[in-house]
């Protein structure tokens, strides 16, 4: 296990009642790394990602984040979650609040940022994703692509060490996928550490440094993206790529 991995996963198991979804996952993530996770539906990709910030509680195994095992009940998970941003397929913007409030509430409430600082930061980040003019809009007034870009900004507002994406473009109309992928690509270029569950093979291949094939609760293959796509080894990955490419 490499020393420079700030996030390590050791023999992670997760069951839902009798259904074993994660059957012993071990891997690690380095800072500034962009990792894609692909695999067939039901293979456990979302469950794995949600285990990383304990939205799902693993049955056994360790998740070592910045040197501490966050599965340990004594750890303050709220503190660790602030350092892990998450972007959901369904955006999940707070429906009762406008864009600005969506962005500044957590930094102000949880990190005790002064309002001016939070607003300044929100406007700057909104500008970077091309949505500065929607600062007063409510979520229902936004398109899916706009919602997702704002959801990304909301996660960035907490200045996380790593961003988790669970199929961020799967709920979008095709013409809006590009605008969200562009934002993600720029994040990657800026050095953000990203773990991305995706069906976008081009993103996995061209943007991510490494790709993981998660199938039936196992990591079947895990290597640098160009090798992953040019020389897949596992027969299951070969047949999966045949189907999706």
């Amino acid at each position: 296990m490499a020393k420079d991995e700030f996030l390590q996963v050791v023999d992670l198991h997760k069951r839902f009642h009798k259904l074993e979804v994660l059957k012993g996952i071990s891997t690690g993530f380095r800072r500034n790394e962009v990792v894609s996770i692909i695999g067939p539906s039901g293979g456990g990709k979302s469950t794995f990602l949600r285990c990383l910030n304990l939205l799902e509680v693993p049955n056994s195994g360790q998740i070592i984040f910045d040197g501490v095992d966050i599965c340990d009940k004594k750890q303050d998970i709220n503190l660790h979650r602030q350092k892990m941003g998450m972007v959901f397929q369904q955006f999940n913007l707070f429906n009762n609040a406008n864009v600005l409030h969506n962005l500044i509430d957590a930094p102000m409430r949880i990190k005790k940022l002064p309002r001016e600082t939070a607003e300044e930061m929100a406007l700057r980040l909104l500008g970077e994703v091309g949505l500065a003019d929607r600062v007063d809009a409510y979520p229902h007034q936004l398109s899916g692509g706009q919602k997702q870009r704002i959801a990304i900004v909301r996660a960035l507002m907490m200045e996380p060490e790593v961003m988790l994406f669970d199929e961020p473009t799967s709920a979008l109309d095709p013409e809006m996928i590009g605008e969200v992928l562009d934002v993600m690509k720029r994040l990657a270029e800026d050095g953000m550490t990203m773990i991305v569950v995706t069906h976008e093979m081009r993103f996995a291949r061209e943007v991510s440094d490494r790709t993981i094939f998660l199938d039936d609760g196992h990591i079947e293959e895990d290597k640098p993206s160009h090798e992953f796509f040019d020389h897949p080894e596992s027969p299951r990955l070969v047949s999966f790529l045949d189907k999706v490419l």
Partner: peptide, 11 residues
């Protein structure tokens, strides 16, 4: 999803 999103940023 509203609760999950809130928990995911540290509420």
């Amino acid at each position: 999803g509203q609760m999950e999103a809130a928990r995911s940023i540290g509420y």
